[in-house]
Amino acid sequence: MTKKKLKVDAAVSSRERTVTWADDQKKYMLDWYIDYLKDQHVGFKFKKQHHLLCADALNKKFAMGVTVDQVDRQYRHYKENWKIIAAALSKSGNSFDHTRCIVTISESEKATLCDRARRLLTKPIKFYEEMQELFTGSSADGSLAMDQNTCMDVSEDSDSDSREMHDLNGYTPPEDPLGDDSDTIPTSITNPTGENSYPSNYTRSGIKRSRGNPMCTLSTKKAAKYKSRLVESNDEITATMKSLRDTLVATAPPHISQLVDPHATLWQRLETIPLTPDQRIIVGEHLSSKENEVKRSWLCNASDGTLHAWVFKFLCEKEGLNL
């Protein structure tokens, strides 16, 4: 009973706080991704560390308290919307009305759309220009988009594009005159009863088991996995360094102007008094000492006559002359 209660409490505590996104927050998010994408290389894909940076920017701008998963879901929502829009615009006869911000599509075609596509394409589309700029040329572009009727049957993930399994039943298996090749992927073998059967050297997925050294395949997989982690680590380091650089620039202390000598006017007035260079040095050394700080302040505010009288009195005392 106690263990079950702990599990329930843990599940409740792990739930994310529901956040309602306003239109200006959504537009800020899309603009942030557009600005970030401008400085990246061709074929760049957004990953978790980039969604984290966007979440930090949103929280600083709007104090929303969104998490990286919530930003990721919002980003994928607009990416899936653009797939539907691009697929509709790729068909002949369809176009986009920029005045009403709506896709012009025939009624017969609307009847064949899935519910999400019908709701999206039959009313004004928000952030059309932002989605077009952000997703054009990516996997969400119209040239790579899926059919609107089936696009929601498959979960979309930007990091899993290279791991999709394709149906190879329509291809003729290659001939192998020298025997079986461990890289050949045969088609399913159907027995007279209509059920698929597999030879002993094939897996249930139709992939042939390798008869060679299993360490070669294992090493190749480890190398590919290590390379993928290395690339991801480099991207994360680059993003972190850029974030630190921007933070340092934003928090840099203001330029401190050069300190001004408060007694500069006193030294200038001493230069106008007819003295020899040696006498000026003696007077300057005396007034520059730490003990004569009060005297310097007094002479700065004294009249020219008082300053002249004090200088000559000081020099006479130094040279032992009687006034």
Rank of each mutant, 00 (worst) to 15 (best):
T99H: 10
E285C: 12
H286L: 09
D115F: 02
T265P: 01
F44G: 09
K38C: 04
V103G: 05
L37S: 15
K227L: 11
N301G: 00
N292K: 07
Y36A: 14
M165L: 06
V283L: 15
T193N: 05
I207K: 07
K38N: 07
S139T: 11
L299K: 05
T67V: 02
M165C: 08
D147I: 00
G179C: 02
N169T: 11
T20C: 12
C54K: 08
Y128L: 08
Y36G: 07
E271S: 04
C300E: 10
A87M: 11
S158M: 08
V154R: 11
Q25R: 11
T104P: 01
L168T: 11
P262C: 04
L230G: 04
S143Q: 12
E109T: 06
K110D: 08
M215F: 08
P186E: 10
Q49S: 13
S197G: 07
D176V: 11
N234V: 03
T99S: 10
M241Y: 04
L321R: 00
T18I: 14
V260D: 05
F62M: 15
V68I: 09
Q49V: 15
C216G: 08
M152N: 14
Y28S: 14
R119M: 15
D235W: 05
A87V: 09
V68M: 10
C316N: 06
A309C: 02
A87G: 03
